[in-house]
Amino acid sequence: MSQKPFIISAEGVNKSFDGFQAIRDLNFYMDVGELRTVIGPNGAGKTTFLDLITGRTKPDEGKIEFLNTHDVTKMSEYEIYRLGIGRKFQTPTVYTDHSVFENLVLSLEGSRGVFRSLFARLNSTERDRLDEILKTINLGSHRDRKAGALAHGQKQWLEIGMLLAQNARLLLVDEPAAGMTDEETAKTGDLLLSLVGEKHSIIVIEHDMTFVRQISQGRKVTVLHQGHILCEGPVDEVQNDERVLEVYLGRKARAA
C-alpha cells in the first residue's frame, strides 16, 4: 500500500470500569502531521482515551496502533514513550523536588538505560537545546528553581517543555490552557501551532472553545460523547451539528 500510515489509529476499542462504559466502540484515525483537537463533555472518555494510548490502562477490546506497526495496547508505559509518544497530563505533573533544568534533563531524548545513566553527561549541543527550550517556555530565569515552587501556569509550561525535550513524534496534550491567563493561553496555542508538521503530530484535549478555535483553524475536530465519536469536522461545522448541539454545545448554550 502506498497510503501514508496513520500516526495513531484505534479500531473497535472498548473499555469499561466497574460496569461503566468509558470507551465504546471507538474508531479513531489520525494522519502524520495533523493537529487534532478532541472536545466533549465531562466523562466523554477524553482522558481515558489518552490513558489507553499511553499504556496507563489497557482496553478490554480492540487495538491501537502507532504508525500502523506498533500495537501499543500490548506495551508498557515506558516502551510506548520510547516509540515517541509524549504526554502532558491534565494536572501538571512535574518532578517537584527537582530543579526546572533537571526536569528537562530527565525528559531529554536519548538512552533510558540504568548503566548508561551512571556515566551520562550533557554535551554542549544538548545543553544549548535545553537552554533554548527554557527560553521558549519562558522559564529561563527559573532554571535552578525547584519545579514545585513554580506557579500553576508555569508548571504547565514546564511540562510542555518536557515534551519538547523529548522531541516526541506524537504529543498528547491534556487541557494545556487550564489555569493560564488569556495571554498565556494564546501563547500556548502559538507554540503548538509552530510545532505541528511532519516531525510532530499533536492531539489536544480542551474545553476552552476560544482556544480550540485558535489552534484548530479549520482542521479536524473530534467530538467524543459517552466514549464514542459523535462527529468529526472543522470547528464551525461541528459547532452547528445538531447532535453536538444536543449533547454538548446546545446544553451549554441553554445554560448560558
Binding site: 508498557s76 514513550y81 504526554r87 517537584t96 530527565l106 525528559s107
Partner: peptide, 13 residues
C-alpha cells in the same frame, strides 16, 4: 517523588 511520571518519561522504573 513520582514513579508514574518516571514511566511516562520513558524510564523502566
Amino acid at each position: 517523588d513520582s514513579e508514574t511520571r518516571v514511566l511516562f518519561s520513558g524510564y523502566a522504573a
